[in-house]
């Protein structure tokens, strides 16, 4: 089953065309990452799917219905965590989770949800006494408490320190294990790579690439880098191939790494040279991402 279908979505704010013909679909049970730099149109897209914003054009279906008219029935099946939202400060963690449980027809137990986001030790604490990261995790808990089929997370880890990010990633992984469909936005490549089954890269309101982390990487015409250190009598002038020097390291860029490497090593053997710290590196997904969004 397909959980979300987006076809030719458009949205402008006055003269700003925030989303310009975005299309993608999300399958049930997968983690789908909307990846893009700030201002790419991620929040606009996700908030149209959540029913907060109207669209100017295109077709959108969420769990089989139009999110703009889905109403309460749809909201019972969807959990969400907004990019910017506070949690009411005066209640305790447990009180707030209990309050939100009351909004849904078949919620999960409060203690289980609090445990899932790692706030068990803070369960009795007033919300205003929690750190920013803890409040954000509580926000995630509120998105999960209704046991939704579909979860939207808009930049769930922005502003987290590395250990809090790791913890949040584990929460998302746990939700995936529960069979939830998850749509998350992020501007961190590594986050999308670690969490998402499929990634949709958007920049300036348009989809620039789409696929699994693997196919994204394979799909680019990026060159392979061959590197080694320039020492032990190696000088750039003597090399048989064109190389660029970066901090004492020679970098040869090639679209045909097998042939280039052969030329290089044949030459080195003939000279009786060892190439120190020889490395052949495929472009990382990070490189791919930077390449895709570099016009922004």
């Amino acid at each position: 089953m397909t959980a979300i279908v987006v076809d030719g979505l458009c949205k402008s704010y006055g003269a700003v065309e925030a989303v310009r013909g975005v299309s993608f679909h999300v399958e049930e049970g997968e983690v789908f990452g909307l990846l893009g730099p700030n201002g790419a149109g991620k929040t606009t897209t996700i908030e149209i799917l959540e029913g907060y914003r109207t669209r100017d054009g295109g077709d959108v279906t969420v769990l089989g219905v139009d999110p703009h008219t889905g109403g309460r029935k749809l909201r019972e099946r969807v959990g969400l965590v907004l990019q910017e939202a506070a949690v009411p400060p005066m209640l305790s963690v447990t009180e707030l989770v209990e309050l939100y449980r009351g909004y849904y027809p078949s919620p999960r137990p409060a203690a289980e949800i609090i445990e899932l986001v790692g706030l068990t030790e803070k369960a009795g604490e007033r919300v205003r006494k929690l750190s920013g990261g803890q409040q954000r995790r509580l926000d995630v808990a509120l998105g999960l408490v209704g046991d939704p089929e579909l979860i939207f997370l808009d930049e769930p880890t922005t502003g987290f320190d590395p250990s809090a990010r790791r913890a949040a990633w584990e929460v998302v992984r746990n939700m995936r294990t529960l069979g939830k469909t998850i749509v998350l936005t992020t501007h961190y490549m590594d986050e999308a790579q670690y969490l998402a089954d499929r990634i949709c890269v958007i920049a300036a309101g348009q989809v620039v690439a789409q696929g699994t982390p693997e196919t994204l990487r394979a799909g680019t015409d990026q060159v392979t880098h061959i590197r080694f250190e320039l020492r032990d009598g190696l000088a750039v002038a003597t090399l048989p191939l064109k190389a660029r020097i970066d901090g004492g390291v020679a970098i040869i860029e090639t679209a045909t790494p097998t042939r280039t490497l052969n030329e290089l090593t044949t030459w080195a053997l003939a000279q009786g040279l060892e190439l120190p710290n020889l490395e052949v590196a495929r472009p990382s997904l990070e490189d791919v991402y930077l390449e895709l969004t570099k016009n922004e």
Binding site: G51, R72, A85, Y103
Partner: peptide, 17 residues
């Protein structure tokens, strides 16, 4: 205050009428 810090918006995304 609640509108400004997103509490109302968040609530609007729940089934609470």
């Amino acid at each position: 205050l609640r509108r400004d810090n997103g509490i109302l918006k968040r609530l609007r995304g729940t089934p609470l009428p």
